[in-house]
Structure formats: structure tokens, C-alpha cells
Nucleic acid binder design. Structure first.
Length: 293
DNA sequence: CTCCAGGACACTT
DNA sequence: AAGTGTCATGGA
């Protein structure tokens, strides 16, 4: 059997955030009974340290957990600090940019079940089928669709993958075409030298991408841990935990930017999005009692 | 049945 | 600038 296996201790509460296919080559198998994740790769690495480096980067293990929140956070918000402790091991993964771009374009005002179904449908219809052996058993999976595959899709067919929403299908096709033509260069946006505001501006120029989705793409796909997306749940905990109370009126553009500016008072600006991700999952699970990811 | 889900956008006050 | 309707479906 090709490939190598690697064990990683992980917090039992957050481990189920990690499942799926990484870079089309690496798989994660969850063990439901103990807090360990077995990572198995079909790809051959030069040596163990090359594999470890890839894992470390993908799971952002280079980010020291102790630096995610500012030191004064614990003193200012002792109750919240206690509450988030079980979630401190939550990681923001450095996922493939195009995959994240398309995935979050599917995540507008919908439940996670619908979002997940769209992505599964997209990979099944437009991805490439691979068959391999995983943990001694046959395993079939689809790669995430390439920009070329999505760019060449017919809207009336692709909308079957986007919850019957042809506006969304057209937006995804358009974004894919921009990537193929080179007028949207995700690697340029991923460059740390690119100002965050400018990168977001470029993403927002695409139809179907607003501020929130742009910030999600930056945080989860473009290695920008300072990007702080504000969705309905973030707004709730900003109001409930930090008294940023304008929970009642709609999230206008001005309101969105205003909230982001105030977030810098309580979180470290350079890791605000990373910290926000931890707060997000803690809020959903501990306060809202949600178990869906 | 109603309401809301990890929103964006056009349109109306 | 700040409120509405629309898009679409499923699960609570």
C-alpha cells in the first residue's frame, strides 16, 4: 500500500471540523471513539519531514495557540475566556483558494445542509473521479472541479448543483472564467504584501460576492487570518458577549465596517479572523446548541 | 404552517 | 443611508 500515515492528537470537541479530501490526495479518517485523527496520504513524500511540513501548513500548526487572543482578553472577559477554552485547538485550515472561492459563493443565507449538498453535487458532476485504496479498502472520490471545468459549464446544468439558483450558477461560472482568463489572480491576492482592503475590493468586484463572503474567502482560502467575516452568528456574539449592540437592525455596509473596526479593540488585528473562528464555533455550540458544521 | 439558515442585489423610502 | 422583496430549499 502506498502512502504514509500520521497520527495527530486533537481536541475531541473540535476534531469533527476536520474531514474531507485535502489537495485531492490526502484523506482524513476520523476515529469516532478516541480523540485522535488518522491522516492517510496516497501521495509519496520525499521524507517524513516533508509530509509533516505539509500537514503543519495545512492545519496552520505554525500559529501558536497562545498568541491568538491578546493577553488582556483573559482579564477583560474571564467568563468568555473560560467558555472558549475547549475550542482553543480549533484550526483555520489553509485550504485551496479556488475551492474556497466557489464554496463560499454557495453559502448565502442557506443552512449548512443545503450548502454541503451543493458542494457534493458540484464535485460529483464537475470533478474528476479517482479510485484508490484507503486503509486497505477501495475508496472512490471526486476532486473539486477545476476552474476550467466550471468556466465551461452550461448555466442550466450547473444550476442543478446550486440549489436550483441560476443566478448563483451564473456567478460561479463567471468567477471561474475570470480565474481561467487570469483577470482574477488568486495567487496575487494571497500575497501578504497585498493590502487586505484591496484584496477584498477585488473579490467584491465579482457578482455574487459581498463583503462577508469576500472576508471568508480571504480567511479560509487566501491565508489572511486578519480578515474578520461577520455573519449572523458573529453579529449575535458581538452583541451578546461584547455588547456591540446593534443586533436588531440590518447589516448595512457601513454597519459591517463599523463593527470590524470595533473588533480591533478586543482582538489582535493580525489574528482577528482566527480568533473569531474560535468564538464562532463556541457561540454556535455552547450558546445556540447547534451541532451542524 | 412559520421561521430561519455561516447573503447578495435590485429596488423603494 | 436605511428598509423591503427576491432568490430557493430543508430542517426545526
Amino acid at each position: 500500500m502506498s502512502g504514509q500515515s500520521f497520527m495527530w492528537n486533537y481536541d475531541a470537541k473540535t476534531k469533527d471540523l476536520l474531514s474531507g479530501i485535502i489537495d485531492d490526495e490526502l484523506y482524513i479518517i476520523q476515529n469516532a471513539t478516541d480523540p485522535e485523527i488518522i491522516i492517510h496520504s496516497t501521495k509519496q513524500y520525499a521524507d517524513t519531514s516533508a509530509f509533516m511540513n505539509f500537514i503543519s501548513n495545512y492545519f496552520s500548526l505554525d500559529i501558536d495557540t497562545g498568541t491568538i487572543f491578546p493577553i488582556e482578553f483573559k482579564e477583560r472577559y474571564p467568563n468568555i475566556w473560560q467558555l472558549i477554552q475547549p475550542y482553543m485547538a480549533t484550526k483555520v485550515l489553509r485550504q485551496a483558494p479556488f475551492e474556497v472561492l466557489v464554496t463560499f459563493m454557495c453559502a448565502q443565507g442557506l443552512g449548512m445542509s443545503v450548502i454541503r449538498r451543493q458542494i457534493e453535487s458540484l464535485t460529483r458532476e464537475k470533478g474528476i473521479l479517482h479510485e484508490t485504496v484507503l486503509a486497505g479498502r477501495p475508496f472512490a472520490y471526486h476532486t473539486f472541479p477545476s476552474p476550467e471545468a466550471l468556466a465551461a459549464s452550461a448555466p442550466e446544468r450547473l444550476k442543478l448543483c446550486t440549489n436550483n439558483n441560476c443566478i448563483r450558477a451564473n456567478n460561479i461560472i463567471h468567477a471561474a472564467q475570470e480565474v481561467v482568463s487570469g483577470s482574477l489572480d488568486l495567487e496575487t491576492l494571497r500575497d501578504p504584501h497585498m493590502p487586505l482592503a484591496e484584496a477584498r475590493e477585488r473579490l467584491c468586484a465579482l457578482p455574487g460576492i459581498g463583503m462577508k463572503i469576500a472576508d471568508c474567502i480571504l480567511l479560509f482560502g487566501l491565508n489572511r487570518f486578519d480578515a474578520f467575516p461577520i455573519d449572523t452568528h458573529v453579529r449575535q456574539y458581538l452583541s451578546g458577549w461584547f455588547s456591540f449592540g446593534n443586533d436588531f437592525h440590518s447589516l448595512s455596509q457601513k454597519n459591517y465596517l463599523d463593527l470590524q473596526a470595533r473588533v480591533c479593540d478586543i482582538l489582535s488585528p493580525e489574528l482577528a479572523g482566527f480568533a473569531g473562528h474560535i468564538l464562532f464555533h463556541c457561540w454556535r455550540k455552547e450558546i445556540k446548541q447547534l451541532n451542524t458544521y
